[in-house]
Design a binder for these strands. Structure first.
Length: 579
RNA sequence: GCGCCCGUAGCUCAGCCGGAUAGAGCGCUGCCCUCCGGAGGCAGAGGUCAGAGGUUCGAAUCCUCUCGGGCGCGCCA
C-alpha cells in the first residue's frame, strides 16, 4: 500500500519536471510514511518540503502542484495538504477491508516479501568457546541471531546460520587439564586444582563420563605435577598442560580433550535446540588447522604482500587496512596465534559465495573488529561484504543486586537455568525486546515472574483469546468461516479500521526489520497489534452479534490471529491456542 | 591515555538513514465483568530527550566539545 502511494507521488513529481526546477535524484527522495495522528490521514509524504528549496517555491505551493498532478487511484479517498507542506493521504475503507482476505489467503506467508531477492547471507553467531555451558549473555546473542535469520528469510534472503566452534587452542587445553584433574580425584588420586582451571560442576560431570568410558586407563602418577611451577598464573597453566600432555601421551591427551570438547559441544547444541535455535552449520576451528586452510590463508596473505617478519614472528600489516596496530600471525616459537585461524575462517567464509556475511559478536570482542575487517580485505574480499555486529552484554540483577559472572570460577547463570525458570518463550521475547546495541539490564526476578509484567504473555494471550472465540463458535454450533463467505463491507467501526491499519503495517515491519537487522521491531509491532486487538475485543462482541456481522468480525480476528502467529514465529516464540 | 557502545518519564526501554503536540510497559490515581478468557479495557498524573555549541524551513535524531556509565586495547584465547 505504501509502495503504491509512493509510485503515485513519483509519477506526479516526474510530470512536474520541465515546469519546475527539480534536482536529478528527486524521485529517489520521495518518502511516504505512516502518519502518527489519524487526523493526518493514513500516509504522508514530505516530498514538497524536501524539494521546495531546489524548486524555488514555498513548500505548500509545491505540494499543491504535486497534488494536482496525482493520477486517479481507487486506493485513495482523500488527499490533503497540511502543516508546513505535508501531503496527507487517506485510504478508502474498501482498500483496508480487502486486506482481511489477503491475510487469510496468504496465511503464514503474509508479511513475506522478495525484498532480499534471494541474496545469500551468512550469519555467524553465539560461537562461544566450548569450555563451559552457555550463560545468559550467550542467550542474548542466540536469540538475536536466530531471530535475525528468520526475519531475513521472511524478507526473501537466502540466510544461513553458522556456529564457529573454538575447538582448538589454549582454553580448550585448560578445559582438558581441568577435566583430567577431576578425573584423577574420582579415581582416588591425590591431587590439587590450579587457580586458573575451570571449576564449574560440569567439569566433574565430564570427568565422570570420561571415567565411564575409559575406566582407570587415564590415571597417571600425578604427585609431581605441581612441583616447581612458575609463579605467574598463565605460565603455570601452560606448564601444567604440558606436563599433563607428556604424562598422558599425545593419544591419551587427545582422548581427554576430545571427550571434553564433544560433551560440551553436544551440550551447547542441545541447549540451543531447546531454545529454538538451530544452526545450518557447525564450523570447527580445528578443521582449519588440520585441513590446511590456515596455512593456505597465510600463504594468500603473504602472496598479497601483507606479511612481514620481525623478531622471528610473522606479522600481518593490519595498519594498511585501518587497524590500529599490526598483528602477529605466527609466533616466534612457530605456533600460530588465535588470529591465524580467525583469518583462515574469514578467508573461507569469503570464498563460499555469499553476497553478504554477518558476524555477530559479544561486545567484549569489539577489539577484534578492525583486525578482522582488515584481514578480510587483505585476503582479497570486498570490505562491504562483511558486517560485524556487536551485541552488548546483559547485566544481570537479582533481588536488585548486580550478579557478577565468571566462566572460570563457575559463577554464572546459565542459559539452561534461565530457560528452566522463565520458560523459552519469555526468555526469547525478553531478549527480543532490546535493541542489540543497547546495554541491557536483565532483571532475573522480573523475567522469572510469571506475571503480566512480562509482555510476552500479553501477546500470547491475544492469540489464545482469538482461538478461544473460535472454540466457543464451534461449541455453540454456529456458522463458521469455512462454510460461509463473510461480507467485510459490514465492518467500519473505528477500532476495526485501526486494527486493519496495524495489520497492514506488518509487511513493512518485516522488511524494515530485515533491512536494518533489527528483529526487535517485530516485537514492538506485536505489542501494538495485541493492544489494538484487546481494545477491539473489549469494545465489540463477536459471537453475540448478528450472523453476517459476526462472520465479518470473525474474519478480521482470524487475520489478526494469523499475523500474531507469523510475528511470534519470527521471534522463535510459540503462539499457544490456550494458556 | 586511546578506541568502540550507551545516556529519552520514578524504573525498564522504543523512537535515531532529520519532519507535525516525544511514545510503551511497569509503578501510581480513578473507573469498566446481566456479554466471547479481567494474563484484558478506558481515563489521568508524570519529560531541561545528560549538558553546551553548530548545521537546517525543521534536531531526541546529523556534526563538535564536555560530563556520566559499560566494554576493549598481549607473540592470551
Amino acid at each position: 500500500m505504501k509502495q503504491r502511494i509512493a509510485s503515485l507521488v513519483a509519477r506526479s513529481v516526474e510530470a512536474l519536471r520541465g515546469t519546475v526546477p527539480l534536482p536529478d535524484g528527486a524521485k529517489d527522495r520521495i518518502q511516504v510514511d505512516r502518519t502518527r495522528d489519524p487526523a493526518h490521514g493514513d500516509y504522508a509524504s514530505n516530498i514538497a518540503l524536501v524539494l521546495a528549496k531546489a524548486a524555488g517555491m514555498k513548500p505548500r505551493d509545491l505540494a499543491q502542484r504535486v497534488v494536482e498532478g496525482l493520477p486517479d487511484c481507487t486506493l485513495v479517498e482523500k488527499v490533503d495538504i497540511a502543516g508546513p507542506g505535508f501531503i496527507n493521504f487517506t485510504v478508502t475503507r474498501d482498500a483496508w477491508l480487502d486486506l482481511i482476505g489477503q491475510v487469510r489467503s496468504l496465511g503464514g506467508h503474509y508479511g513475506h516479501s522478495e525484498a532480499g531477492a534471494g541474496g545469500r547471507v551468512m550469519v555467524e553467531f553465539v560461537s562461544a568457546n566450548p569450555t563451559g555451558p552457555l550463560h545468559v549473555g550467550h542467550g542474548r546473542g542466540a536469540a538475536y541471531g536466530d531471530s535475525l535469520v528468520r526475519v531475513l528469510r521472511a524478507a526473501g534472503y537466502d540466510a544461513r546460520s553458522e556456529y564457529y566452534i573454538n575447538d582448538a587452542g589454549r582454553q580448550m587445553d585448560i578445559l582438558a587439564l581441568s577435566v583430567w584433574l577431576r578425573y584423577l580425584e574420582l579415581q582416588g588420586e591425590e591431587t590439587r586444582f590450579p587457580a586458573g582451571g575451570y571449576r564449574g560442576d560440569y567439569v566433574r560431570d565430564i570427568a565422570r563420563s570420561l571415567a565411564g568410558e575409559n575406566g582407570d586407563e587415564l590415571v597417571r602418577p600425578a604427585a609431581s605435577l605441581f612441583d616447581d611451577l612458575p609463579e605467574e598464573a598463565d605460565p603455570a597453566m601452560d606448564t601444567l598442560v604440558a606436563r599433563c600432555r607428556s604424562l598422558l601421551g599425545d593419544a591419551g591427551f587427545r582422548t581427554v580433550f576430545d571427550h571434553a570438547c564433544g560433551v560440551m559441544v553436544a551440550d551447547i547444541r542441545e541447549d540451543l535446540a531447546e531454545f529454538g535455535v538451530a544452526f545450518d552449520c557447525w564450523f570447527s576451528e580445528r578443521s582449519l588447522v588440520t585441513g590446511g586452510a590456515m596455512e593456505k590463508a597465510i600463504r594468500v596473505l603473504e602472496a598479497n604482500g601483507h606479511v612481514y617478519e620481525k623478531d622471528g614472528a610473522k606479522w600481518f600489516r593490519a595498519t594498511d587496512f585501518g587497524d590500529e596496530k599490526d598483528r602477529v600471525v605466527v609466533r616466534a616459537n612457530g605456533a600460530h596465534t588465535y588470529f591465524a585461524t580467525d583469518l583462515a575462517y574469514h578467508f573461507d567464509k569469503g570464498e563460499r559465495g555469499f553476497d553478504r556475511i554477518l558476524d555477530i559478536f559479544g561486545a567484549d570482542h569489539h577489539g577484534y573488529v578492525d583486525r578482522i575487517r582488515a584481514s578480510f580485505e587483505a585476503l582479497g574480499h570486498p570490505r562491504e561484504k562483511l558486517d560485524i555486529l556487536l551485541v552488548q552484554f546483559a547485566v544481570l540483577y537479582r533481588g536488585g543486586e548486580k550478579v557478577s559472572m565468571s566462566t572460570r570460577e563457575g559463577e554464572f547463570v546459565t542459559l539452561r537455568e534461565l530457560r528452566g525458570e522463565v520458560g523459552n518463550d519469555a526468555a526469547r521475547f525478553f531478549y527480543a525486546l532490546r535493541r542489540p546495541e543497547q546495554h541491557m539490564d536483565f532483571d532475573l526476578d522480573l523475567a522469572k515472574s510469571q506475571s503480566a509484567d512480562n509482555p510476552v504473555y500479553y501477546i500470547q494471550y491475544a492469540h489464545a483469546r482469538i482461538c478461544s472465540v473460535f472454540r466457543q463458535l464451534r461449541e455453540r454450533g454456529m456458522e463458521t468461516l469455512e462454510t460461509a463467505a463473510p461480507n467485510y463491507g459490514l465492518l467500519g467501526e473505528s477500532r476495526e479500521l485501526e486494527l486493519l491499519r496495524t495489520l497492514s503495517r506488518y509487511p513493512e515491519v518485516v522488511a524494515s526489520a530485515a533491512a536494518s537487522l533489527e528483529p526487535h521491531q517485530v516485537a514492538y509491532y506485536l505489542r501494538d497489534l495485541a493492544t489494538d486487538f484487546h481494545t477491539y475485543y473489549n469494545a465489540h462482541p463477536f459471537l453475540a452479534s448478528e450472523n453476517d456481522l459476526r462472520l465479518a468480525r470473525l474474519g478480521l480476528i482470524d487475520a489478526t490471529r494469523q499475523v500474531i502467529a507469523n510475528g511470534l514465529d519470527l521471534l522463535g516464540v510459540s503462539a499457544p491456542e490456550s494458556m
